[in-house]
Simulated scan of single mutants.
Amino acid sequence: MSDKTEKAAGAFNEQQSDITAAFEGFLQDRVLPQYRDIIDRFVEQATVEEPEMRLRMRGGTARYYSVPVFKLARDIVAISPTKSGVTFSFTAGAAFTDPFDLLGGDGKRPRTIRVSDETEYLADAMAHYLRQAAILDRNAIRTKQQTGIDGSTRDA
C-alpha cells in the first residue's frame, strides 16, 4: 500500500470511528430505551439492503441536535427519535410507490414513516423504501453527470 493510500485509509477509518462514537452517543443521549431496537434494526437492514450507503451524523446547532442519516451521493433517509417513537424521513419519498400505504406527509419531496413499537416495524416495507431511495439517488447522479449546469444535455 502506498503512503498516500495508507494515509487515506487511516483517515477514513478514523472518520468512521468518530461517526460510530457520535452515533452511539446519539442512541444513549437522544433515544428512549424502548426505541433503540427499532433504530438498530433499521441500521442493520439499511447496511444489508444497500451496502454502499453510509451512515453519518447531520446537523447539530445550539437549537437542534444532530441526527443520523444514510447517504449515497446525498442524504436519503434521516432517523429522528421522538417521545412517541422513531420517524424515518425519506428525502425523496414523494416520488416513491407506496404499496404498503405507510408514507406520511405532504411536502414537495420528503415522506415519513413513524414506528412506535418494534412489532410495527415492517422489514419488507422498509426494504422497498430503501431500494427506491437508492435508485432515485443513483438516477439523480447520472442525470447530473449527463446534463450541464443549465440543464442542457452534454454530448456523449
Rank of each mutant, 00 (worst) to 15 (best):
V31P: 02
D37V: 10
D106Y: 10
L103K: 08
A46M: 03
Q132K: 01
R131M: 05
A140P: 03
T47D: 07
Q34S: 07
Y129G: 01
M57S: 08
G25S: 14
R142L: 00
E24D: 12
S116D: 11
A123M: 09
V43M: 01
N139M: 01
G107W: 14
T5K: 15
I113E: 05
I149E: 15
I19C: 03
D3Q: 15
Y129S: 01
T112R: 13
P68S: 06
E6Y: 13
D29S: 11
L72H: 00
V48S: 06
A134S: 09
E6M: 12
D3R: 15
D18C: 04
D124F: 04
V77R: 02
T143F: 04
V69Y: 10
A127Q: 12
F70W: 00
I149C: 13
A156D: 13
A125C: 05
V48M: 06
I19F: 07
A95D: 12
I113L: 08
A62S: 13
R154M: 12
F12D: 13
I19E: 07
H128F: 10
D124S: 11
Y129W: 03
D150R: 09
T61K: 10
V43F: 01
F26Y: 15
T5H: 13
A156N: 13
R114N: 12
Q45Y: 05
R56P: 02
Y35L: 03
Y121W: 13
R114A: 13
L27Q: 05
A78W: 14
Q45F: 03
E120P: 08
V115W: 04
M1F: 07
D29R: 07
Y65G: 15
K144M: 05
R30H: 10
A22Q: 11
K7W: 10
T97Q: 08
T153N: 08
E24Y: 02
T87D: 14
E14C: 07
G85D: 09
R109G: 06
A22R: 09
S89Q: 13
